[in-house]
Structures are given as structure tokens and as C-alpha cells.
Design a protein around this nucleic acid. Structure first.
Lengths: 341, 341
DNA sequence: CTGTTAGCGCCTTCAA
DNA sequence: TTGAAGGCGCTAACAG
């Protein structure tokens, strides 16, 4: 920067200004600095800038996994929103464990991010402590804080939080209600990856069936394994083996549902005549399965975009009033009724 | 750090040492520093550390897209390898454009990464210039430099490069040869997302068919659109409409192939009897389609892991001799013959 | 609108 | 094995 300053015949400070906020220097100086900067191939050191200004222009983004399309979409939304504003996402993988999340968060915080985006609301007390101590904006995604009070879940905290997501419970309820409305009597559930969000979906589904007077706990098959097409196929078989009278099935993720559909095709089970199938998330290809899969479209990318926007707003004014003025953004969901139900 | 030093009764310098390289201080001092550090909740500032030591512990990772599972797997491999070593990946999305890549690279370089991982070998001259000027290790992935000379492609450069990947050409050739060996006569091609790697696959396939004396350019359908299940379904129909005698099809990515399979099921076209179908990449679920999809398993995650390892090795010794000693790591591929052929 | 001064928090280097 | 001095490259705060 000193070299550029010398070449342009100004001080280093003016170079800094001319490059970051061109409108604060005279047109003539701006041009000279720009020319010199370009000629010398000057690339400002963000590290030094960060140290001096206490702004790293990075954002910590913690997601459970890179192999789950849901969080990739979230990340894509975050990335495409942050990037044009000059922010660099720092991704951290938590592997669905609150303890691992706390550790990853600590690691990320050492990089002094200007904001934090988390997945879910199920954090360790240690994580809540960390968050409470932060002076940078934090947004929780994929879930909603309890309506009304905007407090974190679990009662271990009175810290207001910003959340962007949709009601997993309501979405699960919608599927259960839909299946019941279709006249199905023996409605089963298959779930994997039992994180809190999955559980909420299941809870919603269960409530819907109870409301319809058709809930049978024996038809619930919940396993901790990561969801996959293979697992869906396997669990479908297991369900039919133990409860051959099942006439409808909610699978808590589309990959499970696709696996189930494949297996139905193999076993010659007509869908939806003999068995109705509903998935969740409306992942790629869901509209093209045979038959096209009924599922719930979730606004994953939009959640990422909105979370990033909230963060940018909070990072812009350095007085973090955002913490006193938390928001709860419900982006909803859509039941996509296709042909498997 | 000064506070910790005071609490431990040592100098700041000793705190720094005790935390980073515990073996360089006395056991007693180490313990005191650790205790004080923990008690005060000290988190060293990586930013300040980076400025002083000229090591940011970050690695720029440039990939074309977050919505292509291939690069997500690559990223996952990179992430899981870098992370335990204390390196933080900085992801950059290039959108499949060499110009955009150059711009993203410039942006990332402002963060002073300690290493760079790129996708492909098709860079702009400007990018090559940038890379040539770097003193940090660089690894190119998903493709291989020309065997023997280890020089970059295109002849615009005499800069030796490190590459980790597999031969896209050979993989495409393997599919073509397989289809021909199955006795198919009218073998078609469907490709989307025409990046250089896709083109190389197509080139290999073409060569195989030529060698078998069965190449018909009329059976090639190449479109620039991003691949998807929907696109596969659509292009299958188009192919059958214009060339109903097609009896085998290579689709350059598994999502296309899955779409084609779905459409075949819809149209009542027996696979593989009437039409053989081969995909590429062995994406999730390929083994579970109906019938199970013949495809090529590509070592995407392993490529990420190996690229990260090479980088770590290169970043460890600060004398970048790695640049004079480039490697070409061929991780191969596997033709997965299943039931669609 | 531009320049001066004084660090940001840590690490390299050297001396003890 | 430990400490002191100095600086990494930039920017906040203020003065002019």
C-alpha cells in the first residue's frame, strides 16, 4: 500500500480510502490511486485489514453435514447472498452432534467471524454460553423459536434468538392429515437421522393421525441411521414384513421415499393403489419418480438467503441492536400432492 | 494474551509458545499457562496470528457449483482432511466459467490462503498468471495433466502443475466399449453441462465406438443445460423421437440417467431389453434404481482427500519445493456393471 | 478532502 | 528455556 501511495503521490491512508470508499476522495485522486494500484497489481491484505478494523468479512456457517442435500441448499442460499457483499462463508461441519457443534463453533470463533449462522436450535449449554457472550449477530435456521416469546428452546436460556425456518411440526402434521384425508387407515412412518427436526416432523404427523383417530404406534419405524435410498428400500421391506396391512407411509426424507418407491416397483406393489407413499423436502427428482412423489417442499435455499440477509443487516450497523430486536421468520412449506398418494 | 501472561506470571511470548508448541516450554510453565488460559477463556486471535506469522491456516477451494453432488463430495473429502489439521477451507463458487473462476480466485487470494485447490485444468491465461506468481502450493483436481510432461494444457503455459484425478477420457471410453461389447448397434449419447470434463468423457466414448465401428454422430445429443433428472427424462424422449432405433444410451451423469430410466418406465420401454442405459459418477441411489443402473464410479471424495494431503505436505515446509516436484495422481475409476446394460 | 499518529494481537528474531 | 524489541499491513480517530 505504501508503494501504491508513493506511485500515486498520496499517503497510504488515502490509498486505503480510495479503494474502499471511492466516494470519500476526490475524483482525481481516486483515478490516480486506481491506476497505480492496478499497475502494481496491488491486492490489499484482508488479514491486516481485519486486524486493524476488527472486521474479518467472514461468516461462520455451521451445518450438520455436507452429504445432506438439505443443508447444501441452505449453504448455497447463504453463499450466494453473502458473496456479492464481500463476505466469505467459513463452513463448519458438526456431524449432527451438539457437542461437536460446540467444538466447531469455538474453532470458528477463533477466526473472528462477523456473524454466525447455525442449523437448528438444539445446542449444548456451552454453546448457548458462547453465543450469549458474542457481540456479533447470530441466526439460527431450519427451525423456529417458540412463537410468541422468541426464547430459545429447552428453558436453559433467556437469550432472545433470531430464527429463520418453518414449522417442522406443522409440515409433518400436513402430511399426516393428507394421508388420513385420502381415506388411508393403516398409516405408517419411517424415519432415519433422528435429529430434533426429524422428530418434530414425526410429532406433527403423529398428532394429525391422533386427531383423525388412526394412530397406531406399532406402525412407526424410527432408526438412527443416516437416510439414503438404500435405507428406504430396506425399511419398506421391514415394514411390510411386520405390518403387511400398511396402506400408507410417510417417509421423513425424500431419499427414503425414493428407495421405498424403487422397492415397491421391485416387489410389484402398486403405488398408490395398494400403498400410498409420501416423502419430505421435495429433493431433486421427486417430481419425476414413477409415480411422481407426493412430498413437502421446504424453502431451504430461501432460508439460507434470508438468514444471510438478516446477518448482513446486523453486521452493517456495528451497534448490535439486532440482539434486542430478534426476529422469527417463518418461510412456510408446501405440500406437493403428486401421484403416490 | 497479555492478561493470560500476567495471570501465569510469564511474558506474552511464553504464552504464545506454550499454546502453540507446548514442547518448547518447561512443563511447569506450560501447566500454569494452560490453566490461566482456560480460566480466562482465552481464544487466540487467528487474525493477529496470521498477520504476524504470514500463515492464515486457510485454504482456498474453488468448485464450479454447490448443486452438483460431484463437487460436494470433493469438498467433503477436502474438508474432512484439512479440518483436523487446523486448516479452514474457504469455498469459492465459479459457476463453471473460467472468467468467473479468475475473479473468485482473486477474491480468495486477498484472504492470503496457505494453499489453493482448483477444479479442472481449464483456466484463463489470467488465472495461470496468478497461479504462476504464487508461492503457495496449488493442486488441480478432477482431471489429469497430460501424462509425461506434467505441463498444463492448452500450450499457454510452461508451468508444472499438481493434479489429482482420473482420466475422464478413459472412463468415457470404458462405457462406450462396454456398450459395444454388449452387442448394441445403435448407441447414443446424451450430455449436459458441457464442461471440459464432460467433453473428455464424450470424446472417450466416441473413440470407443469408432474403434468398434459403430459411431454415428447423429446419435449424439449434447446440450449446455445443467444436468438434472428432469433433463434426462426430456432428452430421452427427444432421442427416441428422432432416432427410435437407438438401442443403447450413455448419459454423461447419473441424474440424467435416472431421469431417462423413469421416462422409460413411463413409456413402457423395457430396460435393458429394448434400450440399454449407462450413467456416470455412481451417485447416491444408482444401485437402487429399477433396474439398477450401470455407471462409472468416480473417486470424488478420495480426490478431495488426496488433494488436501498434497497441499498439507506442501504447506508444511515453507520452501515450496513442491512446485518443482509436481505430481500427477491418478485415482482411477470403476465401471459398475449393473442391470440396465 | 487529505494526512498524521498510533495501534489492532500476535509472532519472528535475537539476546539473555 | 525465557524475555524484549519490533513489526506484520492496514485502518480508526483525529487534526488540518
Amino acid at each position: 500500500m505504501a508503494d501504491v501511495a508513493a506511485a500515486a503521490g498520496v499517503s497510504a491512508m488515502t490509498v486505503s480510502r480510495a479503494l474502499r470508499r471511492p466516494d470519500t476522495v476526490s475524483e482525481e485522486v481516486r483515478a490516480r490511486v486506481e491506476e497505480a494500484s492496478r499497475r502494481l497489481g496491488f491486492v490489499p491484505s484482508r488479514v491486516a485489514s481485519a486486524l486493524a478494523s476488527a472486521r474479518t468479512m467472514t461468516v461462520a456457517v455451521l451445518i450438520p453435514s455436507l452429504t445432506n442435500a438439505v443443508f447444501i441448499d441452505l449453504l448455497a442460499g447463504v453463499q450466494e447472498t453473502l458473496s456479492p457483499q464481500g463476505y466469505q462463508p467459513l463452513i463448519g461441519i458438526t456431524g449432527y452432534g451438539p457437542e461437536a457443534e460446540e467444538h466447531v463453533l469455538r474453532t470458528q470463533l477463533a477466526h473472528d467471524p462477523d456473524g454466525v449462522i447455525l442449523s437448528g436450535l438444539d445446542h449444548t449449554p456451552g454453546t448457548w454460553d458462547l453465543l450469549r457472550g458474542l457481540t456479533i449477530p447470530v441466526v439460527h435456521t431450519m427451525d423456529l423459536s417458540v412463537e410468541g416469546d422468541l426464547m430459545a428452546e429447552g428453558g436453559h436460556d433467556d437469550c432472545p434468538v433470531q430464527t429463520v425456518g418453518f414449522s417442522q411440526f406443522d409440515a409433518g402434521y400436513a402430511v399426516g392429515a393428507h394421508l388420513a384425508a385420502r381415506g388411508r387407515r393403516r398409516i405408517g412412518l419411517i424415519a432415519g437421522q433422528l435429529d430434533p427436526r426429524t422428530r418434530q416432523r414425526c410429532d406433527g404427523w403423529r398428532q394429525a393421525l391422533r386427531d383423525a383417530g388412526r394412530h397406531d404406534p406399532a406402525l412407526e419405524l424410527m432408526v438412527p441411521d443416516a437416510t439414503s435410498v438404500a435405507l428406504g428400500a430396506e425399511l419398506l421391506e421391514r415394514t411390510l414384513a411386520t405390518h403387511p396391512d400398511t396402506d400408507a407411509l410417510f417417509l421423513c426424507n425424500d431419499d427414503l421415499a425414493q428407495g421405498a418407491l424403487f422397492q415397491c416397483a421391485r416387489l410389484g406393489i402398486p403405488v398408490p393403489e395398494r400403498l400410498a407413499v409420501a416423502g419430505f423436502n421435495d429433493l431433486a427428482g421427486a417430481a419425476w419418480t414413477v409415480p411422481p412423489l407426493t412430498t413437502v417442499a421446504t424453502p431451504r435455499r430461501a432460508i439460507g438467503v434470508e438468514a444471510a440477509r438478516l446477518l448482513i443487516a446486523g453486521m452493517a450497523d456495528r451497534t448490535p441492536k439486532s440482539r434486542e430486536n430478534p426476529r422469527r421468520v417463518d418461510l412456510g412449506f408446501r405440500l406437493m400432492v403428486r401421484e403416490t398418494t
